Simulated assay, not measured.
Amino acid sequence: MAKYKLQEMGDMRYDGKRRVYPKMVTNRTLSRKEFVKMMQNYHRGISESTTEAVLTDVVDMLTDMLSMGYNVNLEGFGTFSLSLAFEDEKPREILNPDDKMTYRKVGVKDINFKAS
Results as ranks from 00 to 15, higher is better:
D98N: 04
F86C: 08
Y70C: 05
F35W: 09
T63R: 10
M9G: 10
P22C: 12
A53W: 08
L55H: 02
Y21M: 12
I111H: 12
D88C: 02
L55N: 05
R28H: 12
Y4L: 08
L62G: 02
S67E: 01
S47W: 03
G16M: 03
T29D: 04
M38W: 07
G16C: 01
Y4E: 14
R92L: 12
E52P: 00
M38K: 15
L6F: 10
A53R: 04
D57W: 04
Y103M: 06
K114Y: 13
K3E: 15
T51W: 06
D98L: 03
A85N: 10
M68N: 09
N27D: 14
D88V: 02
M61P: 00
R13K: 14
E89N: 11
H43S: 11
R19K: 13
L30N: 07
R19H: 13
S67P: 00
V25C: 07
Q40G: 07
R18L: 11
K23D: 11
V36M: 03
Y42R: 15
E75S: 12
G45Q: 08
N73C: 08
L30Q: 14
R104Y: 01
T29C: 12
N41G: 15
R92W: 08
E89A: 12
V54R: 04
Y42D: 14
D57M: 07
P22D: 09
D15L: 14
D110I: 13
A53G: 08
F80T: 02
E34L: 05
L30H: 15
N41D: 10
S31Y: 10
S83T: 12
T50V: 08
D110S: 15
I111A: 07
L66T: 00
T63K: 10
F86W: 10
E89V: 09
K114H: 13
T56V: 09
V20M: 11
Y14K: 15
E8F: 07
F86T: 13
L66P: 00
A115D: 02
L6W: 03
Q40F: 10
E34V: 09
S116T: 11
V20T: 11
Y103H: 06
N73W: 03
